[in-house]
Computed example of a mutant assay.
Amino acid sequence: QYTPSRSPLNVPLVMVIPSPGGCARVCCCNETGMLERLPRCGKAFATMMRKVDVWKWCNLSEFMVYYERFTNCTEVETIIVGCYWPNPLAQSFITGIHRQFFSNCTRNRGHWEDPPDEVLIPLIAVPVLLTVVMAGLVVWRSRRTDRLL
């Protein structure tokens, strides 16, 4: 016996099967159906992105509404076929869309290097020495207070 969860459109989302231990199991993810439905979201997103100048594709504020619709679409289409979201197949699809539209958005950043030893040693030594000095002052002050009382 199972109890189907339903979406607002009265479409079964996930079949929940009670197990002997009292925990519900989720079954019936139609991965083939999901892979057939997700491209609809990609096509709709591509249509919306044509409204944005290509040189603005790296500025999220220019197409945030479109991306939110795309994300919601992938979530709905995944859940309709009884799968959880996100899942590896949906993530792979979304990654493909990212490669298609945002592959040029990564900026070439300079190679990070450690600073020279003349800079690095004081940056490490000063906080260590200050910690030792402060701990010594606390111990010294606490012993001195005991003598005054």
Rank of each mutant, 00 (worst) to 15 (best):
C105Q: 03
Q91K: 12
I94R: 09
L137F: 10
K51G: 01
K51A: 11
V65E: 08
F101M: 04
K43A: 08
I94Q: 09
T95S: 14
V65P: 00
L120T: 14
L9N: 11
M34Q: 15
L148W: 09
S92M: 08
N72I: 11
T106A: 09
G21A: 03
V133P: 06
Y66I: 00
E75G: 13
V26A: 10
W55G: 03
Q1T: 10
N10P: 01
K51N: 09
N30E: 04
T74M: 15
M48D: 15
R147H: 11
V138T: 07
F45K: 04
Y67W: 07
T47S: 08
V14W: 03
L123Q: 09
Q1S: 10
A44S: 14
N108D: 05
I94T: 08
R143I: 06
G42Y: 05
D53C: 04
L38K: 04
A135T: 14
W57D: 00
C27R: 11
S19A: 07
T74S: 13
V14D: 00
M15P: 00
V139D: 04
L13V: 06
R143F: 13
C58I: 07
R144W: 07
D146A: 10
G22N: 06
N87A: 13
P116G: 02
T95D: 12
L60P: 01
S103W: 11
P115A: 11
P88M: 09
S61Y: 00
V54C: 02
C29W: 00
Y66F: 07
L120F: 14
N108R: 13
I124N: 04
V65W: 02
N59T: 04
A90Q: 12
V128E: 01
V26R: 12
F63R: 04
E36V: 00
G42N: 10
N10E: 11
A46D: 15
S5Y: 01
A135F: 12
T106L: 05
T106D: 08
N10I: 08
C73L: 11
C73Q: 10
G96I: 09
T95K: 15
V52W: 05
P116E: 06
N104A: 08
F101S: 02
M15D: 13
Q100K: 15
S7Y: 05
E77C: 03
A125I: 08
V14T: 07
S142H: 13
S61G: 05
L89N: 10
C83F: 12
H111Q: 07
S7T: 14
I79G: 07
R141C: 11
N10H: 08
F93S: 01
Q91C: 07
C105Y: 01
C73N: 09
G82P: 07
Q100A: 14
R69D: 14
I80H: 07
T131I: 12
G21R: 01
R143G: 06
P86Y: 01
S142L: 09
L13T: 05
S5V: 05
C41M: 06
E113H: 12
V128A: 12
P88I: 13
L89D: 10
R147M: 02
N30Y: 09
